[in-house]
Write a protein that binds this DNA or RNA. Structure first.
Lengths: 216, 216
DNA sequence: GTCTATAGATAGATAGAC
DNA sequence: GTCTATCTATCTATAGAC
């Protein structure tokens, strides 16, 4: 079904390539593109720097591969969402699914947020694969907002701003690191905190996008 | 009234120190702590690397000074906010003031967001001055939320999560760079886009924190 | 497919003249 | 207060043996 690499037909063993990707994902999430040296990636992957260049032509390609893998995982999580039904219920499902995807690994939020903020530097390395996945992601979210507004279930807000707001709310939370842990008083990725976050962000989002505007 | 540096009593001329801070702020905002070399800071400031070290003991001190200056500017903007009145009106004023502060310079949002996301790397360099300013900032916001919840004007939400959400909504928007511009279809820092953003984020926030929870 | 060795550039930081 | 010169370490990337 999905793409299979030519060599390494399957097996549960982690190939060298996967090992590199795992290592790089952790390091890029913590220190960003510029903050990571291939020397450290190689060291932690248990091989020499030159071996990295055998699997990836350059640092930027390694980063792109890591980013693409994360976007794929988030997109896969959204695959089971219903395309019909109440817009409010679909929006709730979308938010919860994205939260679950980001909560599934402590590297996803940080890496996604960094890839956005470091965009000015990384633009040159954008891949069509990542762009396509992003477009699918935002397309699905846009449809919910647009159809909900058309049916009157949701407020009529500018869809791009709503999408931008969702990214800020959801991705930032899981990328906030020590800052967020200081603020919330505990780990971000514990199951109890993930539950609390959902209990806050789902009603916050639904209320923000449904009820009428207040004036002071 | 406020602190005055020993030398450079005033005058409208930018001192070498200010020139360095301005240059560093622009570069750190674009490329982050690790992405900036002091060589480039010196070059763009019109002096040698060694001159930098005359004003700042090291790269981390330069970064801290830049960050502290930005936090001071945001805090100063909040100084004129009323401490009494309707919680909804105060919350609206807070959001609009923070938006104005972030919109005043295209380096503030990116640098603030980066300082959070890069926190794991930068923690060692935190300064008491910046911590104090952050505490004041969050203190003011917390009071609005707590008092609003006590009076029944606002929903009773976990204050830390609400603060975290505000940071994600507001700071991320102004730090989203090309990503945000692609999504919104135009520049983030134009006066018209700033107005549109306020028109979205103020009702979104007020609705999110006031009305009752929906169920699907 | 993995290695050692190395290239050329740049990193942050220091010494010391003026 | 600003400079040139230099230090050591690290950076991405390549060459070429095995």
């Amino acid at each position: 079904m999905s793409r299979v690499s030519p060599e390494a037909p399957s097996a549960g063993v982690a190939s060298s390539r996967d090992k590199i990707l795992d290592t790089a994902e952790a390091l890029f999430a913590r220190s960003g593109f510029q903050g990571v040296g291939l020397r450290e990636v190689a060291l932690r992957s248990g091989m020499s720097k030159s071996a990295l260049f055998h699997y990836f032509p350059g640092k930027a390609d390694l980063y792109s591969a890591v980013l693409d893998r994360i976007l794929g995982a988030v997109l896969e999580g959204m695959g089971s969402l219903p395309e019909r039904g109440s817009a409010v219920a679909r929006l709730k499902g979308l938010v919860e699914t994205i939260v679950d995807s980001l909560a599934a690994s402590p590297t996803r939020g940080p890496l996604l947020l960094r890839s956005i903020v470091e965009g000015e530097v990384l633009d040159d390395y954008e891949t069509p694969e990542a762009d396509e996945k992003l477009a699918q992601l935002f397309g699905a979210a846009s449809r919910i907002l647009t159809e909900g507004a058309a049916s009157g279930e949701l407020r009529s807000v500018p869809v791009p701003h709503a999408l931008q707001g969702l990214v800020g709310l959801l991705v930032f939370h899981f990328a906030s690191g020590h800052f967020g842990e200081d603020l919330l008083g505990g780990p971000i990725y514990s199951s109890s905190e993930i539950r609390r976050f959902k209990e806050f962000v789902v009603p916050f989002t639904l209320n923000g996008l449904t009820t009428q505007t207040l004036q002071d």
